[in-house]
Design a protein around this nucleic acid. Structure first.
Length: 105
DNA sequence: GGCGTGACTTGAA
DNA sequence: ATTCAAGCCACGC
């Protein structure tokens, strides 16, 4: 299984109304210091069905918002799932956090 | 094949 | 607590 493929699967398996971080995914894939690769992989996969809007950085900030649409599309998608987003940042992300190592098994 | 860049993270000043 | 700098790996030029 390639690193990218894993990222794709994990991202696709993120439950609705939940979010995760690049570092968490990277760590789950065995590359705790390669969080950038995760984001980069998503960049090449944004043309797929990957709900990349559910993946944010460690601070819960929607860093990839500009790569999504350049507008508030990402924010709306998250809000549409019941996640409160303010200023491109997820509020109480701890409450929405989704850990693949715990939830996905 | 080398250099620079990137949807990040973490450690140190 | 906040800000700066370095590390990470793959892709593009």
């Amino acid at each position: 299984m390639d690193f990218f493929q894993k990222v794709y699967q994990v991202t696709q398996q993120i439950p609705e109304g939940r979010i995760t971080t690049y570092g968490t995914i990277a760590n789950y894939l065995g590359a705790p210091r390669s969080a950038r690769m995760v984001g980069w992989a998503l960049n090449k996969s944004n043309v797929r069905d990957l709900p990349a809007h559910r993946v944010v950085n460690r601070n819960g900030l929607l860093t990839g918002k500009f790569h999504f649409d350049g507008t508030n599309l990402m924010k709306e998608l998250l809000e549409n799932e019941g996640i409160l987003v303010v200023d491109n940042q997820i509020q109480e992300m701890e409450n929405y956090f989704w850990d693949p190592a715990k939830e996905l098994l």
